[in-house]
C-alpha cells in the first residue's frame, strides 16, 4: 500500500494537494517535485501554471496556423484542406445562426473561442499537459471576454440609449413602462449571470473530467500494485476509459460555450439584423 500510494502521489499530483482531489501530473508539477523545484524558473512556472499552459497553446497553435496558411494554395495540401474544412464548417454554422454578414463578422471571435477551449480541454488527456480550463481563473477570463464583447456589440449596434432601452425591455406602452423598474434590474442580473454561468459550467465540467482521469490513474496504479510488482512505477492504463468521455465532454463543453456566446451576441443585435 505504501509503495502504491507513493506512486499514486507522484503521478497523480495536484497543485492543490492540500485542498482537493488529485489531478494527473503535468510537466510543471513534475519539475516542481524535481531537484529543480527551488529554481526561480520552476517556481515561476509552478506559480503561473495555468497561464503557462494557455500561452503554450497560443504559441503552438499560432505557429501551426501561420505555417499552415503561409502558402495559400488554390489546390490545398492535406493540412490546409483540414484547416479549410474547419473554417468552412464553422463559418457555415455561424452564418446559419447569425446570418451571413454577422456570421462572418463574429466568426474570428467565436471560432477562436471554440478552438481555444477545445484544445485546452483536450490538453487534459495529453501526457504532461494540463487543461487550463480546469482552472476557474481561465474560464472566468474567457467568460469575461465574451461578456465585454457582447456589451461592446450591444452598444455599438444599438447605441447607449438603445441598449438601455433594450435592458429596460423596450417599453412602448404604459404597462411596459410600469414594468421597467422590474425589467431593468432583472436584465442587469441576467447579463451579469451570463459570464458566471458560462465560466462555472466549463470549469466544473473540465475539472470533473480531470479529476476523473486522475482518479483512474490512481486506481490503475493501485491495481498494478496488487499484482505484486509494486516496486515498478507504473499502473494499468485504465484512464483510457475516461479519456473517451473527456474527448466527448471537452468537445461538447467547447461547443456549448461557443454556442451560448453566439446566442448572447444574437440577443443583443438589433431586431432587423437578426436572421
Amino acid at each position: 500500500m505504501s509503495v502504491t500510494t507513493e506512486h499514486a502521489e507522484t503521478t497523480a499530483h495536484s497543485e492543490a494537494e492540500e485542498t482537493g482531489p488529485p489531478e494527473v501530473a503535468n510537466f510543471i508539477t513534475v519539475l516542481a517535485r524535481s531537484p529543480l523545484k527551488d529554481t526561480p524558473v520552476v517556481k515561476f512556472l509552478h506559480h503561473w501554471e495555468n497561464p503557462v499552459f494557455s500561452w503554450l497553446i497560443v504559441v503552438i497553435i499560432g505557429v501551426v496556423v501561420i505555417r499552415g496558411t503561409r502558402r495559400r494554395l488554390m489546390i490545398p495540401s492535406r493540412f490546409q484542406n483540414f484547416l479549410e474544412l474547419l473554417v468552412e464548417k464553422f463559418h457555415d454554422f455561424l452564418c446559419g445562426m447569425l446570418g451571413k454578414e454577422n456570421g462572418r463578422r463574429f466568426l474570428p471571435y467565436i471560432g477562436s473561442l471554440f478552438f481555444f477551449i477545445l484544445i485546452n480541454n483536450m490538453c487534459g488527456i495529453i501526457p504532461f499537459m494540463k487543461s487550463s480550463t480546469a482552472s476557474y481563473r481561465t474560464t472566468l477570463a474567457l467568460a469575461l471576454c465574451t461578456f465585454f464583447y457582447v456589451q461592446y456589440i450591444a452598444i455599438t449596434k444599438r447605441g447607449v440609449l438603445g441598449y438601455l432601452d433594450h435592458l429596460a425591455g423596450e417599453p412602448r406602452d404604459v404597462i411596459a413602462w410600469c414594468m421597467v423598474p422590474l425589467m431593468f434590474p432583472m436584465h442587469i442580473v441576467q447579463e451579469l449571470a451570463k459570464p458566471v454561468s458560462l465560466s462555472l459550467r466549463l470549469f466544473g465540467n473540465v475539472l470533473g473530467e480531470d479529476i476523473l482521469i486522475g482518479a483512474f490513474v490512481v486506481l490503475g496504479i493501485a491495481l498494478f500494485g496488487l499484482t505484486g510488482f509494486e516496486a515498478i512505477p507504473i499502473g494499468f492504463p485504465i484512464q483510457i476509459l475516461p479519456f473517451f468521455l473527456a474527448v466527448i465532454l471537452g468537445t461538447v463543453q467547447a461547443a456549448v460555450f461557443a454556442i451560448l456566446s453566439t446566442i448572447y451576441i444574437l440577443l443583443v443585435l438589433p431586431h432587423e439584423e437578426q436572421p
Binding site: W48, N50, P51, S54, W55, I57, V58, I61, G62, V65, I66, T69, P108, Y109, G111, S112, L113, F115, F116, S132, S135, R137, T138, L140, A141, L142, L144, C145
Partner: peptide, 19 residues
Amino acid sequence: QIVTQIIAFLVFVWILKKF
C-alpha cells in the same frame, strides 16, 4: 492570472483572425 489569461486568449484570437 485572469488578466494574463485574457491577454493570452486575445492574442490567440488575433493570430487566428489574421492568419
